[in-house]
Amino acid sequence: MAKLKNKVVIITGGAGGIGSGMAKAMVKEGAIVAIVDVNEDTGKAMEEKLHAISPKSMFLQADLMDRENLGQIITTVVEKYGKLDVLVNNAHASRQVTIAETTQADLDLSFDTGFYPTFYLMQAALPFLKESKGNVINFASGAGLNGHETQAAYAAAKEAIRGISRVAANEWGRFGINVNIISPIANSPGVEAWAKAQPEYYEAVKNKIPMGRFGDVEKDIGRVAVFLASEDSNYITGQTIMVDGGSIMLH
C-alpha cells in the first residue's frame, strides 16, 4: 500500500545524503517529490533516479541563501502540481570549528543555509499546507542537543529550528498541520566528512550508539520521514523524533 499516494513533497538538500534517502523512500510510497538543491549535476542525477520510480517528480535548482527568492520555490512547485502536502527542510551547511575560532561568516553560513530557509519556506508554504492539512518535517541534531565540540554555529541554528518548529506546532495545529523534527544519525556526506576530520571522536560516538551503527539514509531516516508525512502520524506534532539508534534518549 502506498502511504503517500499522490502527496506532493518538497525536500531541500534532496540531491544527496539524508535528503536523497528520504526522496527515495517517499517516491516508493507513491509521493511526487520535488528535490531542491544548489548543485545542478547531482540534482539532475537524482532526478533521473526518482523518475525511474516516479516520473512526475522533479529537481529544482535553487540557492537557499538567496533569501528573497525562497518563496518562489513553493510557488513553482504548487504551480506545477496544484498543491503542496509536505515540506521537508533538510538542507544545512556549516563549518566545524571551536567557539573561540567561530567567526561571523561561520554563523552566517549555518543560519543562512539552515535556519532562515527553514523559517521562510515554512512561511511561504503555510497557505498551501492549510489547504492540504499538510506536514512539515524539520531537522535537529545531537550537536545541539548534546553540545558537540566544534559545532557551535551548527548547534545554534539547529536549536533555533527546534524552537520555531514548536511554535509552529502550537500555532498551526488548529489548521490540521503537523510540524515535527527528526534528529538523525546517518551515514550522510556530512558525517563522512566529520569522520575524516575527527576520526577518534567519530569512532567514540559510533561505539556509544546502543544499536552499534550509523543509520541508513533511506531505510532508517527515510522510513521515519514517510511515517511523519503520512496519515499515520496525524496526532503527533511539535515532537523531536530521535532517529539515532538510541544515542540520545529524551526525557
Rank of each mutant, 00 (worst) to 15 (best):
Q123L: 12
V136E: 01
F115Y: 13
T118W: 08
G134K: 05
Q96M: 14
A143N: 00
P184C: 10
A93C: 05
Y116K: 12
N180C: 04
G212T: 03
T150F: 15
S94D: 12
G147H: 10
T118C: 14
N89S: 13
A124K: 13
S183A: 15
V205E: 07
S132L: 06
I185C: 04
E203H: 09
I209W: 05
K208C: 02
R213K: 15
G176F: 02
L107Y: 09
D106I: 07
E131P: 09
S165C: 01
S183H: 04
N207E: 13
Q96T: 05
D106E: 03
H92Y: 10
F139A: 03
G163F: 00
E131K: 13
G215P: 00
F128M: 10
V97E: 12
A193D: 07
F214M: 06
L121W: 11
L129M: 07
S110K: 05
V205W: 03
V97W: 10
G215C: 07
G173Q: 04
I177Y: 01
G163A: 15
G142L: 11
E149A: 15
G190D: 02
D108Y: 12
I182H: 01
I99A: 15
V88K: 01
N207G: 14
K130Y: 09
A193F: 05
M211G: 00
L126Y: 14
R174W: 02
N170A: 10
A105P: 08
N89R: 02
P117M: 09
S188F: 02
W194P: 00
I137Q: 05
G114A: 12
D108M: 10
K133E: 14
V167F: 05
I164R: 01
A93F: 08
N89V: 10
K206W: 06
W194Y: 15
A100H: 13
D216H: 11
A124D: 10
A160C: 07
A168C: 09
I209D: 08
L109R: 06
F128H: 15
T103N: 08
A204M: 12
F139D: 00
A153Y: 06
V88F: 02
S132D: 08
T98G: 12
Y120Q: 14
I182L: 05
W194V: 03
A125L: 07
L129T: 06
N90I: 04
D112W: 02
L107C: 09
Q96S: 13
T98Q: 06
I137N: 05
L129H: 01
I185N: 15
I185T: 13
P117N: 09
G144Q: 03
V205A: 12
F115R: 03
Y202R: 06
F139M: 05
G173N: 07
A140L: 03
F175V: 01
P210C: 07
N187S: 15
M211S: 09
E203A: 15
E159F: 08
S188W: 00
Q123V: 09
N207V: 00
V97L: 11
I161V: 14
S94K: 02
T102F: 04
P189E: 09
I181M: 07
